[in-house]
């Protein structure tokens, strides 16, 4: 947990002072319990299966619509991924489900290291393909960024099992992976504020964008918030301020950090109640801020 003695290979320019490199290294590669990664893997890989049926559930339906509605994101073109057709998306989903099952199994049974690495990369590639199909019919959502990051970094940690709770074994690779997911979460919030200023202008907060949302898809509760207008304008201010301040959670520790996680969860709950949008993939990744290993009993 203290700064490691060897810092030559940290990838930083040699001109920096060793103390800067050291503190950067101890932040980016802060050793965290492998058991935390084990629990997060169970949550993430089970959620991916849920996601393919209930969040980005549309690829099988999109695969049957006319190809003239297909507007591929650049990633699909660069990688020469095919125009979706039913057999392709159904096979893709089965492959990702199997890979996710292996990843969950690897938490409870000690498998050879190459198995979770391979399965994890298959799940990452397969789900990225799947999600990009959902984004290739002229509607792109930004709720999946942190989840896609999680899928690509979680396999790099190596073995992580429930047994690691007993030994309390910590790992720098685990710390890096969790930080990457956390940055993915914070990027989603903070860059939402950046996009609001970019597309909506600094006066986004005083506009009627939330009224637009509630009018188009508000629940009864959401529509009740339309009048008087100041309720939704105050909500816009609150959201914008929270998004701008969201990077603080990267440095917050202990109770403050948990309070911030609770605050974000409350925000996602309120959008679910007001307009049936919940950003669940982001909610799952918020768990990367919590000491999840405590869910495993110490003596198992």
């Amino acid at each position: 947990m203290t700064n490691p003695s060897t810092t030559e290979a940290s990838g930083e320019p040699a001109a920096r002072t060793p103390s800067v490199i050291g503190s950067l290294r101890s932040w980016v590669f802060e050793p965290v319990p492998l058991a935390r990664v084990a629990v997060l893997r169970v949550l993430v890989y089970l959620f991916v299966v849920y996601d393919m049926f209930l969040v980005i559930a549309d690829p099988p339906k999109l695969a049957t619509v006319s190809a003239q509605l297909y507007r591929p994101v650049r990633m699909r073109e660069w990688l020469h991924l095919p125009v979706p057709f039913p057999e392709y998306v159904q096979t893709l989903r089965v492959v990702v489900i199997i890979a996710c099952a292996v990843m969950v199994l690897s938490v409870f049974r000690r498998l050879p290291g190459w198995i979770p690495l391979t399965a994890g990369l298959v799940a990452a590639a397969g789900f990225t393909d799947w999600a990009s199909i959902g984004m290739s019919y002229s509607k792109v959502d930004h709720d999946h960024f942190a989840l896609v990051v999680a899928l690509w970094v979680l396999p790099t940690v190596g073995l992580a099992t429930t047994a690691d709770r007993r030994t309390g074994l910590r790992s720098e690779a685990a710390g890096w992976a969790l930080l990457a997911i956390q940055i993915g979460v914070v990027a989603t919030y903070f860059l939402s504020a950046v996009a609001k200023v970019r597309f909506g202008g600094w006066d986004w907060v005083t506009g009627s964008t939330f009224a637009w949302a509630m009018t188009r898809r508000g629940t009864d509760l959401g529509r009740a918030l339309l009048d008087p207008p100041w309720i939704l304008i105050a909500s816009q201010w609150l959201l914008f301020i929270v998004e701008v301040l969201s990077p603080l959670i990267l440095w917050a520790r202990g109770k403050l950090r948990y309070l911030m996680v609770a605050g974000f969860l409350l925000f996602h709950l309120s959008t679910q109640l007001a307009m049936s949008i919940n950003f669940l993939p982001l909610v799952v990744c918020l768990m990367a801020f919590l000491p999840l290993e405590k869910l495993i009993r110490q003596k198992n």
Binding site: V73, R74, M75, T128, A131, S132, M135, V140, D141, H142, H144, F145, V148, A187, T188, L191, S192, V194, A195, K196, R198, F199, G200, G201, D203, W204, G207, S208, T209, F210, A211, W212, A213, P229
Partner: peptide, 24 residues
Amino acid sequence: GSVYGNDTHWPFASMGQFAFRVGD
């Protein structure tokens, strides 16, 4: 993605949902 990019850069797209302004 959010400073210069657009939707076609997914997964590195702009976080642009609800980012446009609707006037009073």
